[in-house]
Amino acid sequence: MAVAALIAVAVVVLAWQRPTPTVALPLRPAGEISLPGDSSRFDYASLDADRGLLFIAHLGASQVIEVDVHANRVVRVIDGVDQVHGVLVVPQQHRVYATATAANQLVILDEDTGARLGQAPTSDYPDGLAYDPQHHTIWTTNETGGSETVIDADNGHIRGTVDLASEAGNVAYDPATARMLVDVQTRDVLAVIDPATLTITRRLPLPGCDHNHGLTLDPAHRMAFVACDGNATLLTIDLNRWKVLGTQRVGDDPDVLAYDPSAGRLYVAAESGRLTTLDQHDRRLTVAGRAHLADGAHVVAIDPTTHRSYYPVPHGTTGQPALLSFDSTR
């Protein structure tokens, strides 16, 4: 009986490890913009859709690159943001926030001029960012520090720290509950934090997930999407009942997630360069496309007004750094 059970488990594991079939992506090329600098690693990107300004973290060059996606040109390059990982534009503040990981700092930039307005200390290895509009704070995920540093979006003062007691993944603001959601990636748990008291109010276990890092929300339909980079799995979480609604296979080492709310489409970009697009209907996801997009295409940003998606990559068609853009075909 025990042998039969072990064989059954082995069959399930082997089936799960088989390469997922390619499904043509519902995208068509819309353009390519040459980016300055060398072909070192890019990280997060953040779009001010109204102004058409895309801010890209060029980690390997310690630069934030600002691109006007309406005019298809690079506006400016902001130097000196040491090993920049996270970048977040907050149009209400007319500011851009970036994590200088090598310096363990949050850097505050003027969206209009690129001027450096200030910085604030964080814990170890600051990575992803989120904005809490109710309390006007920036939440900085300290990956190896295992915490969130909460920083005043106006003056850069530290409001407090939340200890997660484990390595931290990405963070997101839930407007329906005015709570922060954080991946606790070495425990495969989604933590819910009350930003008023800076206390953890819930820890949701994520069965079937190995190392939950990526995170984005569909607030209107009360869902969270969690990418597990240890086993190339996407989990859909019901934020009403706090349970897993479903799982999907995605590209190896999924990293950045982006959701287009008006189209109901989720984009999961992976370190492997494989992109998965999934469509949401009746709070369920179905795979719309799954294929290799480009080497190094682990970052995606979406314009919810045009449904155009953007991917900074180390090597474009000319072999130089480039910003690839794609339009949806359906």
Rank of each mutant, 00 (worst) to 15 (best):
V3K: 14
A4C: 14
A8Y: 08
A8I: 10
V11T: 08
Q17W: 03
R18W: 13
P21E: 10
G31R: 00
P36V: 04
S39Q: 08
F42H: 09
D48W: 08
D48S: 01
A49C: 06
R51A: 13
V69E: 00
H70D: 12
R76E: 02
D82G: 06
Q83T: 11
V87W: 05
I108F: 05
T113S: 12
L129H: 05
Q134D: 14
W139E: 06
T140S: 07
G145N: 15
G146R: 02
S147W: 09
S147A: 03
V162C: 00
L164G: 02
E167T: 05
D174P: 07
P175K: 02
A178I: 00
A178R: 13
L181K: 05
T186S: 13
D188V: 09
I193C: 10
L198G: 01
R203L: 15
H211Q: 13
G214T: 04
L217D: 02
L217K: 00
P219H: 08
P219R: 01
H221T: 03
M223W: 03
D229G: 03
A232M: 06
R241S: 13
V244C: 01
R249W: 03
G251V: 01
D252L: 14
D253K: 13
S262K: 15
G264K: 12
L266Y: 11
V268S: 09
S272M: 07
R274M: 11
A297Y: 07
V300P: 05
V300G: 02
V300Y: 11
Y311M: 01
Y311I: 04
T318W: 13
S325W: 06
F326H: 01
